Computed example of a mutant assay.
Amino acid sequence: MTVDVDFHHGDTIDAVFPEADVRVQVGFAAPYAAAVNYGSDPHWPPLTPMVRWTNKLGWENYDLQEADSEDALWQKVDNRRAAGDPLPGAYHLAAHIAENGTKPMLYASDAFIEASQRGEKWLEGRGYDAETPVVEIARDFANWSLELANDNLVSRVSAASDGNLQRSAFPAKVIAK
């Protein structure tokens, strides 16, 4: 997921720094972030994130290791199935998604709406002055938006876990136009 925040010249801090036309790009490291945010139709997800998540939940994954390649994970599942052994929790979660899809969490969408609504108060509370580069303000705002998204993710998705989610967002990058 990517959010672009464009700063234009006008009655904002850009008037102080007219050369600072800035684009802030906010994204998520996890390739499945959009599916978690918006929900998804039924599909077979990769096992790697399923292993990571079910390990956090304390589900039994038998011999599946997070460090295994995707092919190795599926091979181990196929071997267990062929031997009539119980299948790992990660497989059961993937099968559930394959049958039902996922419901939207809107953790990022809601965070970016909240950030846009509270942005002016956020800016006032930061104490920036005319010497603060606009790129620093843009980066800080984008990272604050990502923190809101992470807070939403933890509260909405981890209710069944110990709440110890690994952060999926990466720091914002500022790209001058």
Results as ranks from 00 to 15, higher is better:
5 V>F: 12
6 D>M: 11
6 D>T: 10
7 F>W: 12
8 H>M: 08
9 H>E: 14
9 H>K: 13
10 G>P: 00
13 I>E: 10
17 F>D: 12
17 F>W: 13
18 P>L: 02
19 E>R: 04
21 D>W: 00
21 D>F: 10
22 V>N: 04
23 R>C: 00
23 R>G: 02
24 V>R: 14
24 V>S: 02
25 Q>P: 00
26 V>I: 12
29 A>G: 08
32 Y>S: 09
34 A>I: 15
35 A>M: 12
36 V>Y: 08
36 V>F: 10
38 Y>G: 13
39 G>H: 02
39 G>Q: 01
40 S>W: 04
40 S>H: 03
41 D>P: 04
42 P>S: 12
45 P>T: 06
46 P>A: 15
49 P>L: 15
50 M>Q: 14
51 V>R: 08
52 R>W: 14
52 R>E: 13
53 W>Q: 09
54 T>L: 15
54 T>W: 11
55 N>T: 10
55 N>P: 00
56 K>S: 05
56 K>G: 13
57 L>S: 07
60 E>K: 15
62 Y>G: 06
63 D>F: 02
63 D>G: 04
64 L>M: 07
67 A>P: 02
68 D>Q: 14
68 D>S: 05
69 S>A: 06
69 S>V: 09
69 S>N: 05
73 L>A: 03
73 L>M: 06
73 L>F: 06
73 L>G: 00
73 L>W: 07
74 W>Y: 07
75 Q>Y: 09
76 K>A: 06
78 D>R: 13
78 D>N: 01
80 R>F: 05
81 R>T: 08
81 R>E: 11
82 A>R: 06
82 A>Q: 11
85 D>H: 12
86 P>V: 02
87 L>V: 05
88 P>F: 05
88 P>K: 09
90 A>S: 03
91 Y>L: 13
94 A>L: 15
94 A>V: 02
95 A>R: 11
95 A>Y: 02
96 H>S: 08
98 A>N: 03
98 A>D: 02
102 T>K: 08
105 M>H: 09
106 L>E: 04
106 L>A: 09
110 D>R: 12
111 A>W: 06
112 F>P: 00
112 F>S: 00
114 E>T: 11
115 A>L: 09
116 S>Q: 11
116 S>M: 12
117 Q>H: 04
118 R>M: 14
119 G>A: 02
122 W>K: 13
122 W>I: 03
123 L>K: 03
125 G>C: 04
126 R>V: 08
127 G>M: 02
128 Y>M: 01
130 A>N: 08
133 P>R: 08
134 V>Y: 03
134 V>D: 06
135 V>Y: 12
137 I>Q: 05
138 A>C: 00
138 A>L: 06
141 F>V: 04
142 A>G: 08
142 A>H: 00
143 N>D: 14
146 L>H: 06
149 A>W: 01
152 N>T: 10
154 V>W: 01
155 S>C: 07
157 V>M: 14
157 V>E: 15
158 S>G: 10
158 S>I: 11
162 D>F: 04
163 G>R: 12
164 N>H: 10
164 N>D: 13
165 L>I: 13
165 L>R: 11
165 L>N: 04
166 Q>C: 05
166 Q>R: 15
167 R>T: 14
168 S>T: 15
168 S>D: 15
168 S>H: 14
168 S>Q: 14
169 A>S: 10
170 F>Y: 12
170 F>T: 05
170 F>Q: 11
171 P>F: 01
171 P>S: 09
171 P>D: 07
172 A>P: 01
172 A>K: 07
172 A>E: 00
175 I>K: 11
176 A>T: 08
177 K>Q: 13
